[in-house]
Amino acid sequence: MKKEFVCISCPVGCRLTVWDDEGEVKVSGNTCRRGQIYGVQEFTAPMRTVTSSVPVEHGRQAMCSVKTAQPVPKERVQDVLRAIRALHVKAPVAVGDVLLEDAAGTGAQVVATRRVEDRRKYS
């Protein structure tokens, strides 16, 4: 089955057509190698980095932003978001702190992307 994508590798935005030619993934419409790589990846296993933010108990800020440390399969994004929504985080949090080891069985960690200090230290 042929699929069509707009390449996101650069501003040109080539319209790619990608199909499976007896086990080999073929790309047309690209004008450079990056389009070829993007087309194959998007056709075979589209991946996305998920970012969100979670409430922090006694944080100096209400929320701490988070991301998956690795991209996750596109079709698992909603599951990963659900796992992130269930997180309970307590201040202090440092950038890079692992908040969840394995997001919804994807193997990707969820890490903090912002520093949130304990507000009780400042009152």
Partner: peptide, 19 residues
């Protein structure tokens, strides 16, 4: 700006805004 895509030119890697 908690989404990623920042810093590809300056740091050579994809960061979120807060990072």
């Amino acid at each position: 700006c908690i989404h990623n895509g920042f810093g590809l030119h300056y740091f050579g890697q994809e960061l979120t805004g807060p990072e």
